[in-house]
Amino acid sequence: MTKNIMIVGVGGQGTLLASKLLGEVLLRQNHDVKVSEVHGMSQRGGSVVTYVRFGEKVYSPVIDQGEADVILSFEKLEAARWLSWLKPDGLLITNTQEMEPMPVITGAAVYPGNLVEKMRAAGARIIAKDFLAIAMEAGTSRAVNVALIGCLSLHFPDIPESEWMAAIDRVVPEKFRELNKKAFSLGRKAAEEGTNA
């Protein structure tokens, strides 16, 4: 059975590293894996999405509406944007950080309030945490991606933590490794502490 994970966020937030780490770990578990994203225009502060699919044999490189087992969201509005991609019994892990898009900055649109509550009311199972604060605790705001992967890792009970650390060793340049491992551990710990925002 193919499993579907979506990583969504804002261009520049480091979603590519997150998908790379995830792909590395899954490949080592002898899964067939496909990771799909779009480069170019979308990276300039726009909404970005990466599809990660794994299983015995993966065909389509993309995940469609109602198909995601997990959505890992780097920003709250993006979680709401991609909500309809989540399976009704899927899991949404979201950073509670808010980043205003240009239409909100210019006053042409409003950033909706209470998004997490509304998505829960719609039936979504949600872990919502301030992963920016967790990343800052690890030492840099740029480690939001790895902190989120740490949280996600707990939902793969068959994959030991050491496998994730080994993937960080392979993917992350040496001088940022310790920092990223710390962010990973803090993210994983945060997930252990429960699912309430």
Binding site: Q43, R44, G46, S47, D64
Partner: peptide, 20 residues
């Protein structure tokens, strides 16, 4: 048939790419 989906009522503002 296509899979069932969840939704909320709010309009979600677009996030177009912008100049850095």
């Amino acid at each position: 048939d296509t899979p069932k989906t969840l939704s909320i009522a709010d309009a979600i503002p677009g996030r177009p790419p912008v100049m850095c």
